[in-house]
């Protein structure tokens, strides 16, 4: 059953990685706003080339 040790360790390491990712995401403000991103992703980007030269 020794392999189980390896699997447990690998799984804990992966899980720790995700814990770190979670803490990072909370810390860096990823979840400060938990509504607007779901709306923002619906907008298509503006495509007009000539527009952009104007604003550049």
């Amino acid at each position: 059953m020794q392999i189980i040790v390896v699997l447990i360790c690998v799984s804990v390491v992966v899980a720790s990685l995700f814990l770190w990712a979670f803490i990072w995401s909370v810390k860096s403000g990823q979840y400060d706003d938990d509504y607007t991103p779901s709306v923002r992703m619906l907008f298509e980007d503006q495509q007009s080339e000539n527009e952009s030269t104007k604003t550049k």
Binding site: D45, Q46, Q47, S48, E51, S52, T55
Partner: peptide, 8 residues
Amino acid sequence: VANEPAVV
């Protein structure tokens, strides 16, 4: 549209 333009 191989390279789709977008203003970002």
